[in-house]
Amino acid sequence: MKSRVATKQNFIGKLFVAPPVILFLVFTLFPMIMAIALSFTDYDIINMPRFVGLKNFQKIVGDEFFWISLKNTCYYTVLYVPSGLFLSLGAALFLNSEKRMVGLFRTLFYLPVLSSSVATATLWFWILNPQLGLLNGILGVFHIEGPAWLYDSKLAMIAIVMMSLWAGFGGNMMIFLSGLKGIPQIYYEAAKVEGAGRWQMFKLITMPSLTKTTFLVSTMLIIGTFQVFDQAFVLTKGGPGNATITLVYYIYNNGFKNLNMGYASSISLILFLIILVMTLLNQKINKADI
């Protein structure tokens, strides 16, 4: 009787697990395998793939636009990841209480996360408009001449970072809030008895307790920055002067504009390896166990 019940439970469990496993195999694992295979071919979608060995990777070494897109992506990462961590953790610390209106602010901060990246980018396209934009309008109130954010090669990436921070920090804030809620209050009470101040409690209790949470958030931020596409596509189209063309944008141009799927797949493989290395480095820096 017990064996029948156990068999039935196992069968039901497998039924529940089957849909996500099938989706993972069809839409994640299979495309990954296909991308790796195509990276060694010359494939234009129309004709059959032609094996070319390592020629695509040799081409990458001398591809000026690949290095420009990699530099832009790294620049975006350097700007966005520390800012995203600081902003989301700061908001979580500020809202980690049961005071009135805290729930409202949590909701307001999280709302941009629910919007699509394309809709958010379209909104910010008008906010950053040099003549009619809200941001330059606010600067004008203080008699500051607002710049042409999206049309200046030095400011365009900074504008994209500002939009990304506004759109994404709410989700990371909620993760940090969950981590803060998991820290036993008895630690802080004991620290207060010992005469510790707020900074000491933050340094010796809060941050060590948030190691795994920080690793999770920072890893998600790093992966997200190296996959940035929608913002640059909607706001700047990679301009001005290739100042905001990113790796994924360059992959898109090669694969879907130039129909050079083999070369696009080879860049995708390089991007995967970069993200893997960055994740391992981040794990070592945060000293977190996966």
Results as ranks from 00 to 15, higher is better:
Y252D: 00
M220T: 10
I60P: 11
I68H: 05
L204R: 15
F16P: 09
L155Q: 05
L114F: 11
G53H: 11
A37L: 12
M207D: 06
F233Y: 15
F109N: 03
K14V: 12
M220E: 03
F226I: 08
L132E: 14
W149C: 00
I251R: 04
S83N: 09
K154H: 11
F215L: 12
L108W: 13
I251K: 07
D230P: 00
T77G: 07
T279P: 03
Q58M: 11
R198F: 08
M278I: 05
F226Y: 13
M201Q: 10
N253I: 11
I68T: 13
F30P: 08
I138S: 09
G239C: 09
L114I: 11
N129S: 07
F57V: 03
T206F: 06
T107Y: 06
R4S: 09
K192Y: 08
W149L: 01
Y188A: 01
F94Q: 07
P19E: 03
Q9S: 12
L108P: 00
L134S: 04
G84T: 05
V113M: 14
P240V: 01
Y75C: 10
L276E: 07
S117W: 09
F105L: 12
A190D: 13
F94A: 14
M173K: 04
V234Q: 05
L54R: 07
K203S: 13
A159M: 01
S178V: 04
T279E: 04
A91N: 12
S115Q: 07
A92Y: 07
Q231L: 04
G13S: 05
